[in-house]
């Protein structure tokens, strides 16, 4: 998580976001992958056009739609009152969900709202401090583009993708979405391409797995 936050901040700074904007995104959006994806869109061209910005927001929405799943899963074992839900939602991430589900029931106090919030806020603190360090380091680099920091972006996402490739269906979805996005990208703008390839690839994977489950039943 620390290297990812630092890499995000350096990419955002290289793309023309100020230290404040880089930090603000970590403080509000607080979703590593979509922050990094957004930072990558800023690279080179500075601030995006309206079409580019809307594509970027659409990618953010699509990526973070998976948080619905974490919320659904958590709320079954840990129903929260309204007030706590409003707070817990701001800080809910993949890692917080993972830690809470795996380590929460083993905690002496059991799976509780306090455990969830503790996990969430610890991760929030680490993420934001690492962002600040990366943003300041990025500001100190004289010419980040000339150093080739652009290659950090695909490497960081490759690092998130590789652990998810656990079987033939996930591998197929990755190849179809990746190559599909590359081919579509020759005709269409970037933000739209990621949305189309993302929805298409996920639908393909869902179709294959649910069809398989049905034929087994």
């Amino acid at each position: 998580m620390v290297p990812f936050a630092v890499a995000y901040a350096v990419t955002a700074r290289a793309g023309g976001l100020s230290v404040w904007e880089t930090q603000l995104m970590s403080a509000t959006v607080f979703a590593g992958a979509s922050q990094f994806a957004a930072a990558g869109q800023f690279v080179g061209g500075g601030l995006p056009t309206v079409a580019g910005a809307l594509g970027l927001v659409a990618t953010t929405f699509l990526l973070n739609a998976r948080h619905v799943l974490y919320g659904l899963s958590l709320s079954r074992s840990l129903p929260l009152p309204w007030g706590q839900r409003l707070v817990a939602a701001q800080f809910l991430t993949d890692e917080a969900y993972g830690v809470t589900v795996v380590a929460g029931p083993r905690d002496p106090g059991g799976l509780s709202a306090a455990f969830l919030l503790g996990a969430e806020l610890s991760l929030y603190a680490v993420w934001n401090v690492s962002t600040l360090l990366g943003a300041l380091a990025g500001a100190a680099l004289p010419e980040p583009q000339a150093l080739g920091v652009g290659v950090i972006f695909p490497l960081a996402f490759l690092g998130l993708l590789v652990p998810l490739l656990v079987d033939r269906v996930t591998l197929l979805v990755a190849v179809v979405s990746g190559v599909g996005a590359w081919l579509l990208g020759r005709a269409l703008p970037g933000g739209l391409v990621i949305g189309l390839a993302g929805v298409g690839g996920a639908a393909l994977g869902a179709w294959i797995t649910t069809r398989r489950a049905r034929s087994r039943a």
Binding site: L63, L164, A206
Partner: peptide, 26 residues
């Protein structure tokens, strides 16, 4: 089940869609 699976596949498809064009199209 379809939508549960769909949401689980979104990171795979989006991450791949971010990586491949940024490598091959660079």
């Amino acid at each position: 089940p379809f939508w549960l699976a769909f949401l689980r596949f979104v990171p795979v498809s989006v991450f791949a869609a971010l990586v491949v064009p940024d490598v091959l199209g660079s």
